[in-house]
């Protein structure tokens, strides 16, 4: 339910003609909700641009897969290439937007998503390159962890994937913009109150006062 909500909200950020790299999980699901009339060129870091939905059984190609090694199709006009070319696109600033998941994000726009000391050891994969190189970075995640702790922190406690790169945070409860001077609340999800957001967000929300006033009036 909240997965779907987040995926649909991500899709509102797509603009016609954008080159976009979507992370595994909820970000990838947002491709199902690209608005009609908006053409988005999806990039996959293992070496594909303009890929389409997964193939039917019997029609997969062993040499066409996404970054999770799952079968994909290529759209007419799509291109395949090697990983060095792919990361020239990513690190070289040619990709307009990336949407990624995270363990924590903080009010300075730093993100932790690749390591929990003593618990999670996966390696950073292409995440650091994507976060550095893509023009716009959106983090999509649940607002709290499974224990109910805020994943939007004053300062990340886990090892960073990148420092001060995040532009927008989309959760199941709210949407935030990360500005030079801090975090701004932009939207509340249906039936979520300002008080609830305040309680579930450790980070300082710069414009929380305006939201409280508007809720009272």
């Amino acid at each position: 339910m909240s997965r779907d909500y987040i995926a649909k909200r991500i899709a509102k950020e797509f603009r016609d003609g954008m080159y976009v790299n979507l992370g595994i999980g909820i970000p990838t699901e947002s491709a199902n909700y690209i608005p009609a009339g908006t053409e988005v060129f999806l990039q996959t870091e293992n070496g594909g641009l303009m890929f389409g939905p997964k193939p039917e059984r019997g029609e997969s190609d062993p040499d066409l897969a996404n970054a999770g090694a799952e079968p994909i199709t290529m759209l007419p006009g799509g291109a395949v290439f090697d990983v060095a070319t792919s990361f020239a696109m990513i690190r070289g600033g040619h990709i307009d937007m990336t949407v990624v998941g995270a363990l924590e994000v903080d009010q300075a726009g730093s993100i932790a998503s690749w390591k929990i000391p003593g618990k999670l050891l996966t390696g950073m994969g292409g995440a650091m390159d994507l976060l550095y190189g893509c023009k716009r970075v959106i983090v999509a995640m649940t607002h709290t962890d499974k224990h109910g702790n805020s994943k939007i922190r004053k300062r990340c406690t886990l090892p960073l994937t990148a420092a001060a790169v995040v532009d927008m945070i989309i959760t199941d409860k709210a949407v935030f913009r990360v500005a030079e001077d801090g975090l701004y609340l932009e939207e509340l999800a249906a039936a979520v109150t300002v008080a609830e957001i305040e309680r579930l967000t450790e980070a300082t929300i710069m414009n929380i006062g305006e939201w409280q006033e508007s809720e009272m009036s």
Partner: peptide, 11 residues
């Protein structure tokens, strides 16, 4: 000649 994504093989 590669088919589909050539991945890391060319480098």
């Amino acid at each position: 000649q590669y088919k589909g994504m050539s991945n890391t093989s060319p480098v």
